[in-house]
């Protein structure tokens, strides 16, 4: 019993985590006609395997031309927001980890408050403000809120990493005549790069996942990101969503996440746990 506990646990974790993913992949291969008629079961029933048809359709059919555009929007907006957010957070986290200054408590308290902020309560005023500023339904209109809401996570993760850096090297550089700023840029930035990279991954996940801002602050396909665009898939029957096409689109939107997770799982776990619980 005791020896079997861990292997069974591992099996349960794997099934729990992967079953819904396998399911959505399986659904994406059910043919569109069979899904409209009803095609229950985990795997496509006999003769209803559509191959790559659903993928072809969501990527090339004129009816769904908003989806390829949404992929571009999502990639562009998420990458820009991630880059800017990580730059701003790196500056702040360096100050928090290394410098004594007034207002340190304020940043930490504010980040904590914002991490818990109910985003939906902001969309009304933001909707109004963004229309006044002329950035409603633009990339910028989404990049700004994504930056603000990823900053807390990025600042925590980064300041946790920065505390582990051997700072004597910075002092050594200063003894050799470098200013505080030079020591930061030439010595610390290269040392901090792995932490910065982890913060960037977590930030990217947030931006890629966002739905509330995506659906409220866009009105056309010019800035609508993938999660919001998925709500606009309509099939022949307006009351019955085209499940297999949606599944194909969902799988496409998950590919970047799976690649990042496969490549950087160790870093992501380190980042998630260091940011939230002090080790």
């Amino acid at each position: 019993m005791k020896k079997l506990g861990v292997p069974i646990g591992v099996l349960v974790i794997l099934v729990w985590c992967l079953l819904p993913v396998v399911w959505i992949i399986s659904l994406s291969f059910k043919s569109e006609e069979s899904v409209t008629a009803g095609n229950p079961g985990f795997l496509p029933s006999d003769g209803t395997n559509a191959g790559w048809d659903n993928y072809n359709k969501v990527l090339t059919d004129d009816l769904y031309d908003f989806f390829p555009r949404a992929i571009i929007n999502s990639i562009g907006i998420s990458l820009i927001a991630t880059t800017l957010s990580v730059i701003v957070a790196t500056l702040a986290a360096y100050a928090i980890a290394r410098l004594e200054f007034k207002g340190k408590k304020l940043v930490l308290t504010m980040s904590l408050a914002i991490a818990m902020f109910p985003v939906v309560s902001l969309i009304g005023p933001l909707f109004d403000m963004w229309r006044t500023f002329g950035i409603y339904d633009t990339w910028l209109g989404l990049i700004i809120p994504y930056m603000s809401f990823t900053l807390p996570l990025a600042i925590w993760t980064l300041s946790a990493f920065f505390r582990e850096i051997p700072w004597e090297m910075e002092q050594a550089a200063q003894v050799d005549g470098a200013t505080s700023w030079q020591a930061f840029r030439k010595v610390i930035v290269p040392l901090a790069a792995p932490g910065v990279f982890t913060a960037a991954i977590l930030t990217f996940f947030f931006a890629w996942n966002d739905f509330v801002f995506g659906i409220s602050l866009t009105s056309t396909e010019s800035a609508r990101p993938i999660p919001a665009s998925l709500a606009f898939f309509v099939g022949a029957d307006p009351f019955n969503r085209p499940a297999s096409l949606l599944a194909a689109a969902a799988v496409i939107s998950t590919i970047p996440i799976i690649i990042i997770v496969l490549l950087f799982q160790r870093k992501i776990v380190a980042g998630l746990t260091s940011g939230a619980v002090k080790g």
Binding site: C17, L18, V21, W23, L27, F211, A231, A243, V261, Q265
Partner: peptide
Amino acid sequence: RTSILIPYGIVTVVSGFAWQFAFTSTNGF
């Protein structure tokens, strides 16, 4: 680690669709 990070990283809307279709009587399991 990899498998546990997939639900964490997956878009919530995708999770919603996956489960909604899984629960439907027409196409689910």
